[in-house]
């Protein structure tokens, strides 16, 4: 994957619940280089928003949603999953590479899971993306 600018932060789109887990991350250095955008529900996310973030040179988009069957709005996380898949397909199709958008299901208590995800994303970005 060719280099893209390193000037911008990776974006975390999360719902209000999963943002609690992000905010509870103990090692806050893990959050450096990430910018959190909190939506009321992951179902509010749009493909257009993801692509706009990539356009604005945010190198990576991480979407955090509540575990399935745990969305406060019942279906939001399932809608988000479909949009993330579509966004990745588009990225693949337009030749900028598929794995730029990642989605994980985390509950408000899953700070340790968020830490693991952030580490993986960081490795992925540093291992070739930026």
């Amino acid at each position: 994957m060719p280099e893209i600018t390193k000037t911008r932060k990776a974006v975390i789109f999360c719902c209000e619940n999963s943002s609690l887990a992000v905010n509870a991350v103990k090692d806050t250095r893990l959050l450096e280089g990430f910018e959190q955008k909190v939506l009321p529900c992951s179902g509010k996310l749009e493909v257009g928003l993801i692509l706009k973030c990539l356009e604005r040179e945010h190198p990576f988009i991480l979407v955090l949603a509540c575990p399935l069957d745990n969305c406060k709005y019942l279906k939001g996380n399932m809608r988000a999953r479909k949009r993330v898949d579509l966004a990745n397909n588009i990225c693949e199709e337009i030749g900028i590479g598929g794995g730029r958008v990642r989605m994980d299901y985390v509950s408000s208590l899953d700070a340790h899971k968020v830490e693991r995800i952030l580490k993986e994303v960081r490795e992925q970005i540093q291992g070739g993306l930026i």
Binding site: V47, G48, L51, L54, E55, C91, E93, I94, I96
Partner: peptide, 18 residues
Amino acid sequence: EKEVEILSSSIRLANRQN
């Protein structure tokens, strides 16, 4: 309008890539 937004972004991203 939603699809316009997606296609336009896609084209711009592809352009930048190329």
